[in-house]
């Protein structure tokens, strides 16, 4: 049954951050997160896995589970484990480094080969754009590539805090546009990978609100794990 008076919808999805070593993946993510986590939490969490909640334009609350990955070449083969079940991939390259641009293309190619069409929102982050004077990868080239592969592209600088929030906001909106209903279904129970038969338990909100007090007489609950 539909949920007419549902207060708000929230979804939870996975964002994987890829890119060559040294392009500033971690900095990008930390800049995005900073101010959200209390410092004491961050000390144990590390910079490899972070969560941030933002509201998409359509009002959906998106809880992003951001997975940073190791950039070293020798861990390349393990990447599929990381981007598996991700809804969004942010692929980074350093505008001062031609090689990282090529690597970024490889990543995009790999994602397009391994992830079924329409399952993944692709975003390309040009990092370190504050170093405009040392730029070697022109904006036009990057944009051309992004259009070709149908990805979001964003010029960012973690140092100056340019474009970082914009990048993630656009990513969220795109994810809602393309996979919104699917993700919403998942958030309520996480049916990823299962056949996805959803039982219909929707009862009217008024019914929930009726809130009859429970009887106190306890049923036996069965033993718990022994």
């Amino acid at each position: 049954m539909a949920e007419p008076g549902a207060p708000k919808t929230s979804v939870e999805f996975k964002v994987v951050v890829l890119g060559d070593k040294g392009v500033g993946k971690t900095c990008l993510v930390l800049r995005f997160i900073e101010g959200y986590f209390a410092p004491k939490q961050q000390s144990t969490i590390g910079a490899f896995f972070l969560t941030k909640q933002i509201t998409a334009t359509d009002g959906t609350i998106c809880k992003m589970q951001i997975w940073d990955t190791a950039g070293q070449e020798r861990f390349r083969a393990m990447a599929p484990l990381y981007y598996r079940n991700a809804a969004v991939a942010v692929v980074c390259f350093d505008i001062m480094d031609e090689e990282s641009f090529q690597k970024m293309k490889d990543w995009v190619e790999e994602l397009r080969t391994n992830v079924p069409e329409g399952k993944l929102v692709l975003a390309i982050a040009c990092t370190k754009t504050d170093m405009e004077s040392k730029r070697v990868v022109s904006r036009a080239r990057a944009e051309h590539f992004a259009t070709e592969v149908g990805g979001i592209i964003c010029e960012t600088s973690a140092k100056e805090n340019w474009g970082v929030n914009e990048l993630f906001a656009r990513v969220c909106d795109r994810a809602m546009e393309t996979r919104g209903p699917e993700l919403r279904g998942q958030a309520s129970g996480g049916a990823a990978g299962t056949g996805g038969r959803k039982s219909k338990f929707g009862l009217s909100p008024a019914a929930h609100a009726a809130g009859f007090g429970g009887d106190t007489g306890a049923e036996s609950g069965g033993g718990c794990c022994g």
Binding site: E34, Q42, S43, I45, G46, A47, F48, D68, G71, A158
Partner: peptide
């Protein structure tokens, strides 16, 4: 060389 987060990360994926 680029930017340091206010707190040093407690270790990156690398």
């Amino acid at each position: 060389s680029s930017w340091r987060p206010e707190r040093d990360p407690a270790g990156t994926a690398d």
